[in-house]
Design a binder for these strands. Structure first.
Lengths: 216, 216, 216, 216
DNA sequence: TATGAATGAGCATTCATTCAT
DNA sequence: GATGAATGAATGCTCATTCAT
């Protein structure tokens, strides 16, 4: 006799957490698509449910409120941002790591759409303190990780030792965010500018005077 | 049947254009306040009218659609951005101009609210091609003006001659946008980071190796 | 030049309070019909609007909430209850006044429907303190008026002098309410019982031993 | 193909009827609590199930419809009303029996809540003929029993012989219902009025002129 | 039997917009 | 020009009920 949930011995249909998690993801996927297309406030729960292939009522069994759905989506997105730092870390040099990251954040078409969502997230954070807290926390992690990385490259001599690592990290993230903003209105953020961004950062931080890239 | 009013010979348009323009501004002012507080889609025409002190129906005599109102507001905001370039121009050195601009864009509390609206604008531009065109055009002007300025300082030797001025202009604007994004979630964009941003830009563009600021 | 509202000299369409009051009544009439048929909670705003012949949105320009509509309706109904006391007063004797009132409250088919609404009102009062307050206030007025009347008939010798007039008033009202309750399930509250009720009250209050009615 | 379970020869109904009855009661108990708090229509099946400690789906295995649940609850409540008659019967005198009953119906806090449900029942009866029939039947029983009792006390000389016993019974029940209505909006139905009610009834029915109570 | 999961229909309320004055 | 009044079409969310396990 296998031991089961300690609460009820007269079990009905057993709960299936995996199926639940999958549904949740399914709904979040649909929500993401709608939010990208319309923004948080213009996307209706009806649209989201349809896109996700579930009923409206079902959606509400997974998220008690549209705001909860938005918050959950944002949390999911933000935690994935930390992976970026891993890329810089894995690369041999700071410059090479930057190039890989920039490529990923700005050039990958899949990421591009997520980037556009970032504007919505920031806009929402400016009104909803709960969202602001979530974004702030994710930002703290990201800045800390990137700052630590910068310190490492300061020690290796690639980055100027007198630069404040935390501020530099914040500025790099800001530059990324700003570039994402350019995607929003279809400005040329493509290959050319992306490369220029890398050089811009490297030159701002470099320990020794770097010759500017020809393409910048 | 009375003959035409002897006052206006200009046939059929008795309206006072100045009063009309004032009302228009009045409505736009109310709209701006509401849009800041709630975003474009969450702010209702009723709210906007109330804030502006006019009736809803009156609003519709100046803007045929809420979308038109949004577009008009965005156009107004964007054209004012060009003034910033004038500041850099007026200052004696590039660095000093940057400092003044940064101060204005990021530290002035009145501007800060406008900054937050910028996120909405970019988000909206990512969905509405008409808005995107408006933003793109304003961006082109801004980048051109800032680029010309950079060229000037390249000629004067303050900025490295091999840097692509247009790209540099785009990156500077991006950095500003990104920093505005930080305001949205209450991150420390205050004095400290603002100063660091100036140094960051200067170091990235400088003709000669600058010693990093102590505060960066 | 006639003086107008002191606020705005540049008048738009002038407000028409009479038309507004009529619409309000129209909506309340529709609401009463629906509430009788279905009860407060089962009647939908859509139904009410349709019955009243207005749009749902229009209803909400007169009552900010369904609860406000319910409360307004209850208030209107309750204030009309005081008219009943006038009937007893106008009649020559207490017994005659009672007969007229009973007839009106219980036998008039138009009133009968309103009576059924009374059950809803009391039920709602048991949950909604705001409604309870409204009902309590109306009850206080009714009991006071009826009590004063009883005192008058005590002085004229028709009602026993040692009876507490306020309690007697409350009991009479209670008996009416209870009889209204019988209408709800179609019990015989018709002529027969109505006459018996009058005798019941008269015998309970009479100064001298009355011979019971043959029909009681 | 396995042969029938040897346990039950009674073909196909393996269920434990006692356990079933207990569950049924458990659900009815939860329903009663919810209905008191919110009324029949505002209480949701989800709330009821939660209050009863069962799943929603389980509720539906005992009652095919929310309306069936309501009806079952009403039937259960109404049959218990007949017990009241027993109290009057057990008491030595009519007056004493009344006092005990009144006390129970109006002063017992547990009964008070049930009383409030009575308003809901009557209101529902006014719309749902099926409910009306149930209430009517219970009322017939109650009136018959109380009428028989009155006849008994007419024979013993305590109640005036010319009074119509059935009508008197109906009026007594009506007065109780009306007093219950007063509980709904928190009117003073407390001890004072309860005592007055007893005197009121006694005086209305008494064979000989009774001196009014000092407290009435 | 009993439960978790799912859903169509509906609910109170709001919105952008129009019309009449 | 400006306003009060009106409305069709949503919107976020809930409900009674069913199905699968």
């Amino acid at each position: 006799m296998p031991s089961r949930s300690p609460k009820s011995s007269t079990l009905g249909r057993p709960a299936n957490p995996e199926a639940r998690a999958m549904r949740r993801e399914q709904i979040l996927r649909g929500a993401r698509a709608c939010f990208r297309r319309k923004g948080f406030h213009a996307a209706s729960t009806a649209e989201i449910s349809a896109e996700a292939g579930v009923s409206v009522a079902n959606l509400y069994q997974y998220f008690p409120t549209k705001d909860h759905l938005i918050k959950a989506l944002i949390e999911e997105d933000l935690t994935s941002d930390l992976d970026l730092v891993g890329m810089v870390e894995a690369a041999g040099s700071f410059r090479r790591g930057l190039e890989m990251t920039t490529q990923l954040v700005l050039a990958d078409p899949a990421m591009t759409d997520d980037g556009l969502l970032r504007l919505e997230v920031l806009a929402e954070a400016s009104r909803n303190p709960e969202i602001a807290a979530v974004v702030r926390e994710a930002d703290d992690h990201l800045v800390a990780a990137l700052g630590a990385l910068i310190v490492r490259y300061q020690n290796s001599g690639e980055i100027h030792p007198e630069i404040n690592a935390a501020d530099a990290a914040r500025l790099i993230v800001s530059l990324y965010d700003g570039l994402i903003g350019r995607l929003a209105f279809g400005a040329a953020a493509e290959t050319e500018l992306v490369a220029a961004a890398d050089s811009f950062i490297v030159r701002a931080l470099a320990a020794v005077r770097a010759v500017p890239d020809p393409d910048m």
